[in-house]
Design a protein around this nucleic acid. Structure first.
Length: 223
DNA sequence: CTCCGGTAAT
DNA sequence: ATTACTGGAG
């Protein structure tokens, strides 16, 4: 219900339908490969991906797998920082990320974080580690612990703001707005679908509004 | 708001 | 040459 014909919830639904049709198959594959990861591996992958495109993230991950065979907190804790930095270089922000990943490995060993079953407790423990923020922790909880969360990345944030789904720019406000409109079982998939849509259509630079199914419901439409 | 940052797209 | 990338800290 909207007097001026701009309804963000309708826009969101149209976008998800469109994304399902166009990127659904790809997204299914991504979900499968992500769910094979261990919790620790998922954490590492998510940290590496921070503010970095997927191609470069995969390069750094490839370097890690090649060097360690199997990635574990013990191995990360032992390796020297310079080596870790060299392996992570292609992902950018490599000094920050190396330190975060090393701190994380140490804390996991010291405080036995991987034994925590309770999602809320794990969330709080992970958030204490410098370099792990709400987006990273939400991704891990959603993918590895099946929590009904819809993690908000830069693409999803952009889409939400453009269609006017939320007036607040704060992380948890945007997340709450999305979760109000998207049923819990569908949230992980919606997360990936929205990212694909944000990369391909609702792009940051030159959004393809002519190709967008929600353009007439969108506050920022250039069509 | 700025910084970290190599890489690819424009 | 500039901009953005599945962010987060100071």
């Amino acid at each position: 219900m909207c007097l001026h014909g701009k309804d963000p919830v309708v826009a969101l639904a149209l976008i998800l339908t469109f994304a399902e049709k166009n990127y659904g198959k790809y997204v299914e594959e991504v979900m499968e490969s992500i769910k094979k990861r261990s919790l620790f591996e998922q954490l590492i992958a998510t940290i590496i991906s921070q503010n970095t495109n997927w191609k470069n993230t995969k390069r750094a991950l490839h370097n890690l797998r090649e060097y360690f065979a199997k990635i574990s907190p013990e191995k990360i804790a032992k390796v020297d920082l310079e080596t870790l930095e060299r392996l992570l270089k292609p992902a950018g922000l490599y000094k920050v990320k190396s330190k975060v990943i090393k701190d994380l490995a140490n804390e996991i060993i010291r405080r036995k974080l991987l034994e925590i079953k309770n999602a809320e407790r794990l969330r709080n423990e992970l958030l204490k580690i410098r370099g792990i923020g709400p987006k990273t922790v939400d991704v891990v909880l959603a993918f590895s612990l099946n929590e009904p969360i819809l993690p908000v990345d830069t693409h999803i944030r952009r889409i939400s703001l453009r269609i006017g789904l939320t007036s607040s720019r704060k992380y948890y406000d945007i997340r709450r707005s999305l979760e109000r409109s998207i049923p819990s079982k569908y949230r992980v998939k919606a997360h990936l679908l929205l990212i694909s849509f944000g990369r391909n259509v609702c792009r940051s630079r030159e959004p393809l509004c002519w190709a967008c199914p929600a353009s007439k419901y969108c506050l920022s439409s250039r069509v």
